[in-house]
């Protein structure tokens, strides 16, 4: 039976946490694609009905700000993984 000293265990855990922080940030792809898609659709909407452009722009920005939250979650998780372990 192989036994690890506490040092080794701590090293492995720390290495895994740092790797995990990197993996967590891959989630940033999602909001980026979604926000860009929303911008594209908003542009199409402005072209279809130029009168409603103010409303379209505020709605787009609000939706993008909400979609951003997923990216912020992954950022928070990554920071927790880096700094607490």
């Amino acid at each position: 039976m192989v036994q690890f000293s506490p040092d080794v265990a701590h090293t492995i855990i720390k290495a895994a946490a740092l790797l995990g922080a990197g993996f967590a940030m891959i989630a940033g792809i999602g909001p980026g694609v979604g926000q860009g898609y929303a911008a594209g659709k908003a542009v199409e909407a402005v072209a279809r009905d130029p009168e409603a452009r103010g409303n379209v722009i505020t709605t787009m920005l609000l939706g993008q700000a909400v979609a951003e939250s997923t990216g912020i979650y992954s950022l928070v998780i990554a920071i927790v993984l880096i700094f607490t372990i």
């Binding site: 922080a21 990197g22 940030m25 891959i26 940033g28 792809i29 909001p31 980026g32 694609v33």
Partner: peptide, 8 residues
């Protein structure tokens, strides 16, 4: 791995 997110 983290830098991959720039694709999105």
């Amino acid at each position: 791995l983290a830098v991959i997110a720039g694709i999105g």
